[in-house]
Design a protein around this nucleic acid. Sequence first.
DNA 1: CTAAATGCAAATATTTTGCAGGTTA
DNA 2: TAACCTGCAAAATATTTGCATTTAG
Lengths: 149, 149
Amino acid sequence: MACEKVFAEQLRKRGLRMTPQREMVLSALHRVDRFATAEELYERVQRTSAAVDLSTVYRTLDLLREFGMVAAIEVGDRQTRYELLGVHGPHLHLACQGCGRIMGISLKAADPLLDKLLAGYGFEAQLEDVTIPGLCAECRARGAEPAHD
Amino acid sequence: MACEKVFAEQLRKRGLRMTPQREMVLSALHRVDRFATAEELYERVQRTSAAVDLSTVYRTLDLLREFGMVAAIEVGDRQTRYELLGVHGPHLHLACQGCGRIMGISLKAADPLLDKLLAGYGFEAQLEDVTIPGLCAECRARGAEPAHD
DNA sequence: CTAAATGCAAATATTTTGCAGGTTA
DNA sequence: TAACCTGCAAAATATTTGCATTTAG
């Protein structure tokens, strides 16, 4: 996956430019463990260059989102999390309220729901960035309560 | 619907108190058109008494949420919206990205998905407060683009 | 009377923006 | 070299909290 290539290509297409900062953010997205907050990515980028600003991270994430290379998802808390959409493309997210883990699964599972919403309500759902809260198998086994807050 | 009764009851159960402010917030939730932000509720409450503070609105909404009388849902934007859970109880929310409208529909539609998640991933989904983005029939007919932001 | 609730103001947290100066193509 | 990008600082937004005072029960 020449992500950098794709990014550079998309940038050029719009008359925008590739910069070291933008490379670093993309690279951080690769190294980070799947879902990261802007702050986490910022910290990671800083290890490479302390001069990069948080606002630049946000601006780059916005671009990557526009290009469809990154998904922005919201778990319960206030922070947005970012995920690199690699070979797998968009998917559905399951967020365990017990342990905080997030799983990405195929959109296929939601096809019946999708059809039902379209047939019954004329509603064309976009489940790509939807995050479904709940409890994962382990937490259920542990008898964990769904954290309300 | 003796919502006030239920509220008062729940409060008493925990040694908390009914106050005019809390009544006003609950009342505002009734009058407001289904989904309201804290700010909207605040404005409405202020028409009755200008002395009520926004923080009190938030505190009351938190209580109502704990009591399961109110659902807090997140549409794309940063603001949380609150909805009174009346006779119908919890449901699934469809948020049109074209016109901003929010529909509440029965959780039934998602039963197959629920089963699939449980069977396939051991994940017990809680769809009560989930908001699904997409396009409603009207907006699709108008050929509206799903607003990315 | 006393624990709980309120208003106020200030703190937090996250994200966005304006701008002067540096940089990329 | 000209449009773009960056860092910095400050603004904007949404929500939460500490505290002195008031109030419900």
